[in-house]
Design a binder for these strands. Sequence first.
DNA 1: CAAATTGGTTTCGCCTCGATACTTTATGCA
DNA 2: TGCATAAAGTATCGAGGCGAAACCAATTTG
Lengths: 215, 215
Amino acid sequence: MTVNDGQSSSETAKNDDPMTGETPDHAARVAELIDRLGRMTRELQYVDGLNPAQWEALRYLNRANRYSRTPGGVADFLGATKGTISQTVSALESKGLIARTPSDRDKRVCLIDLTAEGERMIARDPVRCIETIVGSMDDRTAALMVDGLGRLMASLQIELGSKPFGVCVACCRHLAPETGCKKSEALPKCGMTGEPLKGDAPQRICVNYLGDAAE
Amino acid sequence: MTVNDGQSSSETAKNDDPMTGETPDHAARVAELIDRLGRMTRELQYVDGLNPAQWEALRYLNRANRYSRTPGGVADFLGATKGTISQTVSALESKGLIARTPSDRDKRVCLIDLTAEGERMIARDPVRCIETIVGSMDDRTAALMVDGLGRLMASLQIELGSKPFGVCVACCRHLAPETGCKKSEALPKCGMTGEPLKGDAPQRICVNYLGDAAE
DNA sequence: CAAATTGGTTTCGCCTCGATACTTTATGCA
DNA sequence: TGCATAAAGTATCGAGGCGAAACCAATTTG
C-alpha cells in the first residue's frame, strides 16, 4: 500500500502556484512534465492496432508535401533508420492505410499517399485528445505554451544537432529549406539541397515545422 | 532530395506569433509539439548504457519518498507491469545504481535506494538539458508552461483513467493520497488506501506530482 | 485457520528497432 | 561515354524491451 508518511506546511488552495513550500523551479517541473507527457502520449498511441511509430508516420504522411511523402522523408522526420521505416511503412501499407507508387522522376523513390482508409484512421488520431484538451484552455495560455514548447524544441534540436544520435539534425536538414529560404534567405543548414522554390500550398506543413525549429 | 515546391504568403519576421498565414490553432501545435518533444526526450535518454525506462525509474527512485521506493511504486508510476519493472530494477541493480533491501515491516516488499553510483548517474540525467533550456527562458513563460502542461497532464490522466490501459490511474492512485488529503481533505480517488498522515518531509516529491495531477 | 490479496520474480514470446548487406537507380568525374 | 560512388529502398538478422501468465511468499480477511 502507499503510505503517507509526511505532511508539510499548511496549504489551503489547490492552485497551481508553487506555494508548496519548496523552490518553484519551473525548469525542473517543465522537464518532468515533458518527460511524463511524452510517456503518456506514447502510451496513448497503442490503439487501433497501430504503434506510436506507425501513428507518427501516418501523421507525418498526412501533413507532408508530396515530395516529402517518401520512406526517406519519414525516416528523416522520425529520426529512424531507413530500414526501420521501411518496416513501418510496410506495416501501414499492409493495413491498407497508405499506398506506395513509384516515382517516375526518380525511379528509386516511391511516393506515399494515404488511402481513404488512412484518412479515416488519421481522423481518429489518439493524440487528438491532447488537442481538444488544450483547446479548452484559454487562448493566452495555449499561445504561451506553443511559444515555450517551440523554443524548447528548437533549442533541443540545436543541442542534439551535434550529438551522435542525429535525430534532430535530420529534421532540421529536412525542414530547414522551407522557411530557411523564405524567411531569412540565409538557410542555415539547408545549403545541401539548394532546390529552387516553386509550386505552392501543399508543403504548408513543413513551413509550420520550420516555424518551430527556426528558433 | 527534399524539394521545395511551395511558397506561401510573404513573411518577414521569424517571430513566434502565428503570422504564417494559416489558422493559428494553438491546440494542434501543442499536440504536435508534445508528441515530437516526447520522441526527442525519449531519444535523448539512450545514453550512459541506460534506456528511457531505466532513466525514468532511476529518476523516480531518486525523488520518491522511502515508502514509495519499491518495485510496485515504480510500476505504478511508470504505468508498466510489475514484471517489466522487475527487469528494469534488476538492470539498475546489476549496474550498481540501486540497492534492494527487504522491508522488515512487510516481508514481501523490498525497499530501493540509490547507491552513490546511482546518485552520480542521476546527476548526469540527460533530461537535465531540458531543465537548463527552460531555465534560460523568462520566468513568466516558464510558469505558464508549468501551468498549462500540468493541466494538460491532469486532464490526460482523467481522460485515460477510465481507459483500458490504466497508466494514469496508477499514478493518480499512487500520488493522489498526498495532496489529495492535505489540500482539499477530499481525496478524490485515494480513498482506497486511506492511510493516516504521519512523518514529514521525505515525501515532498509526491506532493509535487500531485500538484500536477490534482486538477 | 483457510481463502483470497498483494508484492515481487521468473519465464516465455511478440514486437520494435538498429545494423548490415544487397539491389536498383542517379550522379559525378574522368 | 563509362566507371565509380552515392543514394533510396528493401530484406534479414539479432538484441532488447515489454506485456502476459505462472508462480512464490507474505499478509489480510472471513
